[in-house]
């Protein structure tokens, strides 16, 4: 049995920080995609003609009912087989983004439905069209009201982003594994990686709190 020795981490510190950087990049891009995608899915399911809404709903079911790991494999390896070659990073962002977009869509859909009908009538009576009303009045309020659960999904996304290491994206877990393969010190590197995830999450939570406080001003 070896004793714990965290000095082995020091030579790999740069590697881990680069991994943490890519985790942050993944989280921000997939998070943005999951947010925008969530709004688009929600609006489509609620307002698009059935011929569009039903397939989208079916797609959402598939994303909700199957493991993220499998979805990533399908997007990266499966699509490559039929000639659609997506770089690993893009595949990771799309996979994570769509996976969480589906969960966000459910939340945002409920948020849109919960906005008082008087808001729509107020906007329509001024002369705003259906889409203008959604865009300027209903969706902004739905987002504000659902900010806490959407933020929760973003935090989950940050942690789940580690799974894209399986398709070779050099994010934090991947970096840690690389270092372990050279040093055979799993405990030290996994603990360090966990600490870095925790720090990233603290930053993210602070940003979310800032947004929520901004929203509170209008309540």
């Amino acid at each position: 049995m070896q004793g714990l020795d965290f000095t082995v981490v020091a030579p790999y510190w740069d590697l881990l920080l680069i991994g943490a950087w890519w985790t942050a990049v993944l989280t921000v891009s997939a998070g943005a995609l999951s947010f925008v995608g969530g709004i688009l899915f929600a609006v489509t399911v609620l307002y698009a003609p059935k011929i569009v809404a039903y397939p989208v709903r079916a797609l959402m079911w598939v994303f909700m009912g199957t493991p993220l790991l499998l979805q990533l494999f399908l997007i990266y390896f499966g699509l490559a087989q039929i000639g659609i070659d997506i770089p690993a990073l893009a595949a990771g962002i799309v996979g994570l983004g769509l996976h969480f977009a589906v969960y966000n869509a459910d939340i945002i859909r409920a948020g849109i439905v919960a906005v008082d009908v008087g808001q729509t009538e107020g906007a329509r009576s001024i002369g705003f069209g259906k889409w203008q009303t959604l865009r300027h009045v209903v969706i902004p309020q739905a987002i504000r009201n659902t900010a806490p659960p959407i933020g929760g999904n973003l935090i989950a996304l940050l942690k789940e982003s580690s799974i894209v290491s399986v398709i070779g994206i050099a994010e934090l877990v991947h970096s840690a594994q690389l270092a372990i393969s050279e040093t055979f010190r799993p405990f030290e590197f996994y603990i360090t990686a966990a600490a870095l995830y925790y720090i990233l999450n603290l930053v993210l939570e602070a940003a979310l709190r800032l947004f929520e406080r901004h929203v509170e001003a209008s309540r």
Binding site: D116, E121, G122, A123, S125, G127, F128, G129, Q141
Partner: peptide, 20 residues
């Protein structure tokens, strides 16, 4: 939408936009 721009409507429950 054009016609409604020419009519002002005031509601019992105001219907102001709370986020603005």
């Amino acid at each position: 939408n054009k016609v409604r721009q020419q009519m002002g409507m005031v509601f019992q429950h105001f219907n102001l936009f709370p986020h603005l």
